[in-house]
Simulated assay, not measured.
Amino acid sequence: MSLAAYITLIMMSLALVVVFIRLVKGPTLPDRVVALELMASIMVGMIGVHAIYTNSSSFIDVAIVMALTAFLAAIGFARFLERGGPRHD
């Protein structure tokens, strides 16, 4: 792998750590949902970088499936929050 790929993956890894801290410390549930979605987006980017530098197109398929799954999860969380969040009956 080239130096650019290593630098990109290191920066994305640091971004994952920062976003994970926001996921754990997030004061509200919407903050945690946004952090989780951002983590999925960063991981899709990391898979894309790996696919480009290994010249393997099968990783692109994995990235697409992961992006679609993360999108559906974000829609589900948004719908959950729209309906009032957790109920304490």
Rank of each mutant, 00 (worst) to 15 (best):
M1G: 15
M1E: 09
M1P: 09
L3Y: 08
L3E: 12
A4S: 10
A5K: 00
A5W: 00
Y6Q: 07
I7C: 05
T8A: 15
L9M: 11
L9K: 05
L9G: 06
I10C: 09
M12C: 15
S13C: 06
L14S: 08
V18E: 02
V19M: 11
F20Y: 05
F20D: 00
F20K: 01
F20G: 08
I21R: 10
I21W: 10
R22F: 12
R22L: 12
R22C: 13
R22V: 14
R22D: 09
V24W: 06
V24C: 01
V24Q: 01
V24N: 03
K25M: 11
K25D: 02
K25W: 04
G26F: 01
G26P: 01
P27V: 06
T28Y: 07
L29V: 14
L29P: 00
L29W: 00
L29D: 02
P30D: 09
P30A: 07
P30L: 09
D31E: 05
D31R: 00
R32V: 00
V34H: 13
V34R: 10
V34P: 03
V34I: 14
A35I: 04
L36V: 07
L36E: 11
L36C: 11
E37W: 09
E37S: 15
E37D: 15
L38G: 08
L38P: 03
L38V: 14
M39P: 04
A40S: 15
A40H: 05
A40Q: 07
S41M: 13
S41Q: 13
I42V: 05
V44A: 08
G45C: 11
G45Y: 04
G45Q: 04
M46T: 04
M46Q: 07
M46D: 02
I47C: 06
I47R: 07
G48T: 14
G48P: 07
H50Y: 15
H50S: 14
A51S: 12
A51V: 04
Y53R: 05
T54Q: 13
S57G: 13
S57F: 12
S57N: 11
S57H: 11
S58V: 13
S58L: 10
I60D: 03
I60W: 07
I60V: 15
I60M: 12
D61M: 05
D61C: 02
V62T: 14
V62Q: 04
V62M: 12
V62F: 12
V62A: 15
V62Y: 07
A63K: 03
I64D: 04
V65W: 03
V65I: 15
V65H: 02
V65A: 12
A67W: 04
T69W: 10
T69E: 04
T69K: 02
L72F: 14
A73S: 15
A74C: 07
I75D: 03
I75F: 08
I75M: 13
G76P: 01
G76V: 08
G76A: 14
F77L: 05
F77A: 06
A78R: 12
R79I: 15
R79H: 15
R79N: 14
F80H: 03
F80Y: 13
L81S: 01
L81M: 08
L81F: 03
L81R: 03
E82S: 12
E82M: 09
E82I: 07
R83W: 11
R83I: 08
G84I: 09
G84K: 08
G85W: 02
G85K: 03
P86H: 01
P86Q: 06
P86Y: 08
P86V: 10
R87F: 13
H88S: 12
H88D: 13
H88P: 00
D89S: 07
D89K: 08
